[in-house]
Nucleic acid binder design. Structure first.
Length: 604
RNA sequence: GGCUCUGUAGCUCAGCUGGAUAGAGCAACUGCCUUCUAAGCAGUAGGUCCUGCGUUCGAGUCGCAGCAGGGUCACCA
């Protein structure tokens, strides 16, 4: 029997698939063991041993009734006989290490190095869309570091899904109504003296945020006064006049009061202008923006449907609930006794709206893990309401960004402001670049652009390299690094490679018949794993896996670059192969960083 | 208290569906720029993988219990 390497219809010829098939056949012919090729696990051979891929034979020794060493040798021999690309094997204890012939790697580089999109799958424009919601800010205060993580994750996961073939629609649901914005409005009305972004020179979202803080200051004072005059705290918080007035303003807003609406539109307008600026600096965007002022009444007809279906019930006071006790949860309110809806009701409505707007089934919500319970319930209720796409709703639950002092709290002023942080990063990037003095020949515009992409590269990589599900720590006292496992390290590696490739000029692919060194093989094997890595990362919704991949690749390349001549190589064939390898790595770095939303420079 | 997530080097983090002697970066210490970009490379030092029991040929990874920390359990969003 002989195994031919075939083109996997999506990507490229895959030696690992051929190997597992050959192993499965060997298991059968040698020991009569039936094992599907797909369920055979190969792992990368550890670098202290010779070989490329390793099969652990322990699972088979019992049935084979032989020692692990014997089983390893027999399978190794059989596979080597049948698979030309296997140039050798060795057995250490129960580990069978396959060695892959250089010819395979050379062919792989020759065929793929010039592909600008190796490992990426073209997005199916006609496929059923996947809707990713992210960002979803409140309009009463500017964005902070927590929002940055959300935005970067949302953007990057969207890119990641696109890179693996999905038709992604990015949406934002702006929370533009409610008591929080009324607080800012009221405080501005009372204490603002007509201040505007233009008159103050303040960014609109920051200006509105300033009055949100202003409200809180007066509110606390009033509560304190009331408590001093003997009112209980609970009561005082409700009775504080400024709070009552904010509530009244909300009511007027809901009634459509012209004056309140005008003020609301004016101040929200300031905020949007500010947000747009921050989004642009972060390099994120949306296909559609929803506003809660338009959607907050949605969901009520769904509640009626649920009542008709008998999956919801009405209590004596008129409130409507969903009983989730059978699912191990509580009862969940969907309509208050006055008939008004709650957050969950709107979210049910907007889910359906989105399903209709895009014909989407997969809805992905990039929302912090403090809302795990909410989304569990949302999914359950959608299911009970009979939507078969409910099980395709996915909450991408990410951990919060903590400071050394603990959680960020906007009202306590312990937040890291998004704009300030980006400013800071750009300043640092500029300083570091000037110190090195490598970019003096660039135009001032090119320099500014470089500082920007380096700053954002550092920031984005810092945040995205961490597993999304985990909380992460940010220490403002220690600025984000530009050395080591960082975005600029990878950007630098790319710039360096591009420099070589530019100097090399045209390169062509021949049927290289040369020997590879360990460093070259190390780089090629990482490139080879790119498609599978992207698949895994997409399945896990984890840009972190992409970030770590890019780092491993850059690291391996730098190690190769350090002690292997490329342009100075005298053997023309070897030189061509190395240039191709360089181009290949540059493409892979560019594409993986692009998934992270990070631009890579041509020089730096 | 119920539910849930997390615990790996001094610090920040990797460790894919269990596999060989647990890996990076930062910080500390050594070397390497007249040679393709030193934002780099090579090396030294640093670990009871929170604890215990269990499953397994094999556990950082799976199960149970405990300890510590976060989140959440609103007619808020």
């Amino acid at each position: 029997m002989h195994f031919n390497l075939e083109y996997n219809n999506i990507y490229y010829m895959v030696i690992t698939d051929a190997l597992t098939q050959a192993v499965a056949a060997a298991l059968k012919s040698l020991y009569g063991i039936e094992q599907e090729a797909g369920s055979i696990q190969l792992q990368d051979t550890r670098k202290e041993f010779a070989g490329d891929y390793t099969l652990v034979v322990f699972p088979y020794v019992k049935q084979a009734r032989k020692s692990p060493e014997a089983v390893g040798s027999e399978i190794g021999e059989e596979v080597k006989k049948n698979l030309a690309e296997v140039s050798g094997y060795n057995v250490v204890k129960g580990f069978l290490n396959f060695e892959i012939a250089d010819a395979y790697w050379l062919r792989f580089v020759g065929e793929r190095a010039g592909e600008s999109r190796f490992g990426l799958v073209d997005a199916g424009k006609d496929d059923i869309p996947v809707v990713v919601e992210y960002s979803s800010p409140n309009t009463n205060k500017p964005l902070h570091l927590g929002h940055i993580r959300n935005n970067l994750l949302g953007w990057s996961v969207s890119r990641l899904l696109e890179a693996t073939g999905a038709n992604v629609k990015k949406v934002n649901l702006v929370n533009d109504r409610g008591i929080h914005i009324c607080k800012s409005m009221l405080a501005w009305q009372r204490y603002g003296g007509g201040e505007t972004p233009e008159s103050s020179g303040m960014k609109g979202d920051h200006l509105v945020g300033k009055y949100y803080v202003e409200f809180d200051k007066h509110y606390k004072e009033e509560v304190k006064h009331l408590m001093e005059s003997g009112v209980e705290e609970e009561q005082a918080k409700k009775e504080a006049p400024i709070m009552q007035e904010a509530q009244a303003m909300l009511k007027r807003w809901e009634e459509g009061d012209a004056e309140v609406r005008a003020l609301w539109e004016k101040m929200n307008g300031w905020v949007y202008k500010g947000f747009d600026e921050t989004y642009a600096r972060l390099g994120v965007g949306f296909d559609k923006i929803y506003y809660e002022s338009n959607t907050y009444l949605l969901g009520k007809e769904l509640v009626q449907k649920g009542l008709d279906m008998g999956v919801l019930f009405r209590k004596e006071d008129g409130s409507v609930w969903c009983d989730l006790t059978a699912d191990g949860l509580d009862q969940k309110l969907l309509l208050r006794r006055d008939g008004t809806s709650v957050y969950m009701t709107q979210d049910l409505g907007t889910a359906l709206l989105r399903h209709k707007d895009f014909g989407a089934e997969r809805l992905i919500y990039v929302v912090g893990n403090e809302q795990d319970y909410h989304f569990k319930v949302l999914k359950l209720i959608l299911g009970k309401l009979g939507f078969e796409w409910a099980d395709k709703v996915y909450h991408l639950s990410y951990g919060m960004v903590e400071l050394p002092s603990g959680k960020m709290k906007s009202r306590e002023g312990t937040v890291v402001d998004a704009d300030d942080l980006i400013d800071e990063m750009e300043k640092t990037a500029e300083e570091m670049s000037r110190e090195r003095g490598k970019n003096d020949e660039l135009t001032p515009e090119e320099q500014q652009h470089l500082y920007h992409i380096l700053a954002l590269g550092a920031l984005k990589y810092f945040i995205l390299k961490v597993d999304p599900t985990k909380n992460m720590l940010f220490n403002p006292a220690e600025s984000i690094d530009f050395n080591g496992n960082t975005g600029p390290f990878i950007q630098y590696t790319h710039a360096r490679i591009r420099s070589i490739v530019r100097k090399a000029g045209e390169w062509k692919v021949d049927n290289w018949n040369v020997a590879m060194n360990e460093k070259e093989r190390g780089v090629v094997k990482i490139l080879h794993a790119l498609p599978a890595t992207l698949q895994q990362a997409a399945a896990a919704y984890s840009p972190a896996m992409v970030a770590n991949y890019a780092y491993d690749l850059a690291k391996a390349f730098n190690s190769f670059y350090q002690d292997t001549p490329i342009l100075k190589e005298e053997n023309a064939e070897v030189k061509q192969m190395r240039i191709a390898l360089c181009q290949f790595v540059a493409n892979a770095l560019k594409n993986t960083m692009d998934i992270l939303g990070i631009e890579v420079p041509e020089r730096m």
